[in-house]
Design a protein around this nucleic acid. Structure first.
Length: 216
DNA sequence: GCCCAGGTGGGTA
DNA sequence: TACCCACATGGG
């Protein structure tokens, strides 16, 4: 089903581009953004990321040695700054330990190995790890986030959970580029017209097969 | 004022 | 394993 969803979203958003959606191409900035956006609106995370860049801390080598309190103050607008500042520093230290971004980007390690290592860092859970793997490291990965789970639930009437959604998507779309687009498209579609508090998604692309829409 | 946003970790039963 | 809650800010 994810293939059909992907095709439908692609057809509806022909101009969608992952780079435009992120608004950032730098791999480390995308990693930092993945942490900053945890349970936070992107507008807030984006401001924090800008502050981090202006403070000259958006580089793993510098962030790895930065003072946590200082980082917390800089990223304040993203909220959860105590936890997020610590997670950012741990991530930076991990990258340095890996020999830096260049080495990490060309690492021979498998996507599963890298995923395990990322999940071992406190403050990086499944969604953040998969976002980092997909959008910063260009690996075939995708997160089964809230938008995807809601979409699945509305189309099938079943709840799958993060892993079920993730593995289903990985099984149907194996290329890193397609997975990157699928997740971005689902978030964009979900954000603009399929809101939690609007069960009757009038503009929803999947309205015909949406159980929530039928029920109303 | 209230709800929510591209979660995570720690605690309890 | 399955819930429950704290964590913090800014926009609608």
């Amino acid at each position: 089903m994810w293939r059909q969803i992907y095709d439908k979203l692609r057809a509806h958003f022909p101009d969608f581009s992952v780079d435009d959606w992120w608004g950032i191409t730098d791999p480390f900035a995308r990693m930092a953004g993945s942490i900053l956006v945890q349970n936070t609106a992107w507008t807030n995370a984006s401001q924090a990321l800008e502050q981090l860049e202006q403070a000259g801390l958006c580089k793993p080598e510098l962030l790895a040695r930065a003072n946590r309190e200082e980082v917390a103050a800089v990223i304040r607008s993203a909220g959860f700054q105590q936890a997020k500042s610590a997670a950012l520093i741990r991530l930076a230290q991990w990258i340095v330990q890996k020999g830096g971004m260049e080495d990490l980007l060309s690492s021979a390690a498998s996507v599963d190995e890298l995923r395990r290592e990322l999940l071992g860092l406190k403050g990086i859970g499944p969604e953040t790890a998969d976002t980092i793997l997909a959008y910063a490291l260009g690996r075939p990965a995708i997160s089964g986030d809230a938008y995807s789970r809601r979409l699945y639930e509305r189309l099938t009437g079943k709840e799958l959970g993060y892993e079920g959604i993730r593995l289903g998507m990985l099984h149907e779309l194996r290329q890193a580029e397609e997975l990157q687009q699928l997740h971005g498209l689902i978030v964009e579609h979900g954000k603009s017209i399929c809101r939690k508090r609007e069960p009757l998604c009038r503009q929803c692309l999947f309205r015909d097969s949406c159980l929530a829409a039928r029920a109303t």
